[in-house]
């Protein structure tokens, strides 16, 4: 009787799941398997005959200096923009968590870039970074700072992209941290104040540890996102100057859709996937031990 009911419930469940699950299989799970298969062939997309090369594409990828350069550029981009984005988001969230008037308006304005069109953002940020007439150079002229071509100089271009990513990605991170801060039970602060803690001490020993789970989520999702960035690079620098902003996302686009090295591009995308999985697992481990440390401390 009850097992018949359970079977009926399972059947119903699979009926409800069917549309989304079939879609998941067709547009995510099978394609991943297909991409993995393709990565073992030398193949141009528009030619009929793929040639099996085993791990050949992986060896070519690993010995390709432009791929190494792209991985390095993505690492630079992630290592700067992810921590900077988190610090700015925590700072803004702290300011908004105080009883500040108009907090909802600030929240709306800060969130706006995150829902904007990536292409439109790239276009207006080209203007922001423009030499002579651009927003930053116009402002810095007032302080007598010499003119800089941010996107045209290889010393600057990557920094400019990181800077832009911090401001345009602020919205969701800020909201998450704001909720994290507001979720700290007030009794914890009261107890700390009774023990004579200063505001900074309370922040360090109560707020920051309570934000560890939020930070884990933000860290993992923004690292994954930053390692796959494409649109701003495509629109603003095309990987230049001198390959200094050629990140993996742009490199893969070039390999797959300009050079049409379909098999090699698949192999490279799996190497990137491997890096992403390893980093994510490592970050989970790290933050988990951090959380346990905070609980004991």
């Amino acid at each position: 009787m009850s097992s018949a009911a359970a079977r009926k419930e399972a059947r119903t469940a699979w009926l409800f799941l069917a549309p989304a699950f079939v879609h998941l299989i067709c547009f995510a799970l099978l394609p991943i398997a297909v991409a993995f298969g393709i990565s073992f062939f030398r193949w141009k997309l528009y030619r009929p005959n793929p040639e099996f090369v085993g791990f050949g594409n992986y060896f070519s990828a690993l010995s390709d200096p432009t791929f190494g350069n792209a991985m390095w550029n993505s690492a630079r981009f992630a290592l700067v923009s992810v921590p900077a984005g988190m610090i700015v988001a925590i700072g803004v969230a702290i300011l908004l968590a105080g009883k500040i008037r108009g907090s909802a308006i600030y929240r709306t304005l800060y969130y706006l870039p995150s829902i904007s069109s990536g292409v439109a953002l790239a276009m207006i940020w080209i203007y922001v970074f423009l030499p002579e007439t651009g927003l930053i150079n116009t402002a810095s002229k007032l302080f007598g700072i010499p003119d800089t071509d941010f996107l045209g100089k290889k010393e600057w271009a990557m920094w400019a992209l990181c800077f832009m990513s911090v401001w345009t990605g602020l919205g969701p991170k800020m909201l998450l941290y704001l909720a994290g801060i507001l979720g700290v039970p007030p009794s914890l602060y009261e107890a700390a104040m009774l023990d004579g803690a200063t505001g900074w001490q309370a922040f360090r020993s109560i707020t920051l540890p309570m934000l560890v789970p939020t930070s884990l989520f933000v860290l993992v999702t923004s690292t994954i996102g930053s390692l796959q960035v494409f649109t701003p690079v495509y629109m603003m620098t095309k990987g230049g100057p001198e390959g200094s902003t050629e990140v993996v996302g742009y490199h893969l686009y070039n390999e797959a859709w300009i050079q049409f090295n379909t098999g090699l591009a698949s192999a490279k995308s799996f190497l990137l996937l491997l890096v992403i999985v390893v980093i994510s697992v490592f970050q989970f481990r790290l933050m988990k031990s951090g959380m346990e440390g905070a609980r004991e401390g």
Binding site: A13, A20, F21, A35, G249, S269
Partner: peptide, 29 residues
């Protein structure tokens, strides 16, 4: 809202595809 065998597996397939698929999918799709 429903109980069935394999629910956790199906759920982790959804979540996993969300986190890791990304750029790998461009060619096969």
């Amino acid at each position: 809202r429903l109980n069935f065998k394999g629910r956790e597996t199906v759920f982790s397939l959804f979540v996993g595809s969300m986190m890791f698929a990304g750029l790998v999918l461009q060619i096969p799709v």
